[in-house]
Amino acid sequence: MKYEIAKPDRQVAMVMDLNKCLGCHTCSVACKKMWNSDAGTDYSYWNNVETLPGKGFPKHWQEIGGRTDEGEIKRGKVPNLDSEYGRAWEFNHKSVIATDAASGDKEWLKPKGNPKWGPNWDEDEGAGNYPQDNHYFYMPRLCNHCTEPACLDACPRQSIYKRKEDGIVLVDQDKCHGYRFCVEACPYKKMYYDYQRQVAAKCIFCMPRIEEGVAPACARQCPGRLRFVGFRDDPSGPIWKLVEKHKVAIPLHPQFGLGPNVFYVPPMSPEQLDAQGRPTGEPRIPLAYLESLFGPDVKRALSTLETERNKRKRGEASELMDILIAYNWNDNFKLDATAREVI
């Protein structure tokens, strides 16, 4: 029987502007260094950045989750460590350092073993043909702290819950028995398994920082200033303005029906070229592809972005562009009316 999920008092959320992500992975490193570098979670990235179009992390995650494109439950898959996540590599540092330069025998730095897959294995590959329509963009991903979390729905022990005060989805690891139905069910594949402690583990939205009014590490460390953090019900904050007012921030795979609370400003793209190298007027990133990620609302979002960008080009005022440009980084984060993020 489905659980009743109590509506939290407030819902914290994040918006990421994909037009500004430079794929530097600083967010992933900031997250990982802070939360999960231990054995057991060494392979996992609560925050990762993947190249799209691409297979993603874990490999083919969009196809092996526990929801259909109609939002129905289907049996998902627990990804394999070697073939779908990619085992954390160990390198031959010692033998490289010990190489005798005088002998001419050079051993290059390389991972031990013979890895077949890993995070960013297909980085910067993308799709299309150079120079006509080759394209890719970077897609940072973390737990969506869904309104109707598939992980919560899948746990027979009710180890997963949504915090009343901010809607952050957490795992009570003292209750978890490591069954991994949550890993199966999450269609975003953002629930991981700590194989050392044999419990589920996931993004906690830097909960201790949120409690102090400080944005999550992935957002604070982002050099591209593409992340916005705040509460969904705060009309003076960036989340409400981007999601509700301007409607340019939209969720990933809304068809799963889980109500993600992480949103994306979709990527605009330059025009394709014809055989003679002339712009065709068609965007390099096909609209159909973006719709497969973000649903039909992506068309309106892109149109709004273009309209507002053109206004700014003409020297006219645009609140939307001012927000997205992030003139004042403080304005990217608005966590509480009284405890605002301070640089």
Partner: peptide, 11 residues
């Protein structure tokens, strides 16, 4: 019989 919505449907 399993608690939650996922297991009864997926299995």
């Amino acid at each position: 019989m399993q608690p939650g919505g996922y297991i009864p449907e997926a299995y």
